[in-house]
Amino acid sequence: MTIFNSINTTASALTAQRLRMDVISSNMANVDTTRGRLVNGEWEPYKRKQVVFQEQEGSFASHLNTARGNTSNQAGGVKVSRIVEDETPFEMVYDPENPEADETGYVRMPNVDPLREMVDLMSASRSYEANVTVLNASKSMLMKTLEIGK
């Protein structure tokens, strides 16, 4: 609830988008990882990860402020509530020569679609840039305010 309200909101958005980009790059790096995790003694391919955004409720301090009658908005923001794994089935690729092939000659590949990850990355990047613009605008407004009466 300070003068840096909107800057804090924007900072939370930058953090969230950065985390989203990290998850995307992790997905892209593991697009061919057939041995992702040991499950019941068997290797399972890498499962695609996704972030879930959630609007950040105000902190306890801001709720207390509102209860005491100090109006004005909550310090909104965004946060990553969880990183979930995509449950779409794994891709089956026919490759009998592969040491990972099962009896029928199919290899289970991670359920990562590079094209989709690229589009996601562009969207995250655009959001990040927009938030940087907002940050600059807020900062210049605050600096201009300091010049009242000079």
């Binding site: 609830m1 300070t2 003068i3 004005s72 305010t145 009466g149």
Partner: peptide
């Protein structure tokens, strides 16, 4: 606390 920078500057002026 809950205050706008513009309010502070204007009040001081």
């Amino acid at each position: 606390e809950n205050v706008d920078l513009s309010q502070v500057m204007i009040a001081s002026q």
